[in-house]
Design a protein around this nucleic acid. Structure first.
Lengths: 201, 201
DNA sequence: TGTACATCAGTGAACGCGCGTTCACTGATGTAC
DNA sequence: TGTACATCAGTGAACGCGCGTTCACTGATGTAC
């Protein structure tokens, strides 16, 4: 087995990634130290450098992983398996569930808005732009199918993503029983933006 | 003059506040150290404690000061002196101008979303809720005056503040000549939300 | 298969640094008489 | 007004701490013959 050593290295790399996600749950990625992550992953600080140049490089990997996963989730949610609910409500429920179950992922995408280097910032910005682009596509496709014109699909997507991220951040700080109100609010606000986007001018 | 010593103390306190605002311009308040602020204010680290219990207490003062100032500004902007432009465009222009001229203030209100203690978080949350409340009042008053019903004034305000803060964060990272596009975008999105809020359901 | 050498993930000690916090102090300002 | 004492904002040294980074090393895994 010529791969044993390589495999072991990849396991450690995985451990570093999982460790940073776990530790991000508390205060986000920006406040993590290399030593904390190495310790949580079960290696010495010096061994960290066998896998990543610095914390920033690890951060880029995390943003990418989380972005891919969250976009896939939202794509599935929009397809809307539960026909009893609107596509909007379906998506909102899926989204809120996900961020409550995976606060680390969400804090990762939010938190960097402020701290972090410019490379990390750009990666985050890029992920969010992807969300917006996918949503814009979806709105335009749906509009064509439904024969309901939409005048500002791109702007509407930007506004929706802004609202969705804002409400998501609030959801993390609330106890479970108050989440329902947030879901309802988010559904109303998203529909409000969609209605506005269907009006000319 | 029995006040000379007290006055001197208040000047130093002011210096600490101004120093932290100045240093916040770079990366926000969360990344500031007590020693940096003391140095910028021209005192030794130990003297800091004559004025504030810790950085968190200073943070609360800053959030309050900036919040008061920004709310006053937006109140004035909504009154809309420039009658050639819509109230929405007037407010958006004022807002973008302000955050570009005072990035420290804006970073202060944004940045804490992630880092900082719970007391600081709550103060921020509280400031933002005030913005939303004032905007809601304004929307309802205007609605009555114009005899244009509005069905979701509170939700619309939440959505508008979310969008406005998001776009504001983006404005800070852009060169001056690309700001115009952001203003236009913000005007369209805010109007979109207002239009949506005037539709029932 | 067995041996000799190369690779390299992870170790553990050491470094200098900026941090928050404490402490006894100084000396100008303020107060009482 | 003049003197003796109290107050207290600011000083400067010291502390222990966790940080990122470096380095020579170890020893298991991998490779060549």
């Amino acid at each position: 087995m010529t791969k044993t050593r390589l495999e072991a290295k990849q396991i450690t790399r995985r451990n570093l990634i999982e460790a940073s996600l776990k530790l991000s749950e508390e205060d986000g990625f920006a406040t993590l130290s290399l030593r904390q992550v190495a310790k949580e992953a079960g290696i010495t600080p010096a061994a960290f450098y066998r896998h990543f140049k610095d914390m920033d490089e690890l951060g880029l990997v995390l943003v990418d992983e989380v972005g891919v996963r969250l976009r896939q989730l939202m794509r599935d949610a929009r397809k809307g398996f539960d026909k009893k609910k609107s596509a909007v409500r379906n998506s909102v429920l899926t989204y809120i569930d996900y961020i409550v179950e995976n606060p680390q992922h969400f804090r990762l995408l939010m938190g960097g808005n402020q701290a972090g280097t410019s490379a990390y910032q750009k990666a985050l910005r890029n992920e969010i732009d992807r969300f917006i682009a996918e949503l814009t596509d979806d709105l335009e496709t749906t509009s064509r199918k439904m024969k309901l014109p939409i005048f500002h699909a791109a702007f509407a997507s930007e506004a929706i993503v802004a609202v969705v991220f804002t409400v998501g951040a609030e959801a993390l700080d609330l106890p479970k029983h108050r989440r329902q109100a947030l879901e309802d609010r988010l559904v109303v606000e998203v529909n409000m933006i969609l209605n506005g986007a269907r009006i000319k001018g």
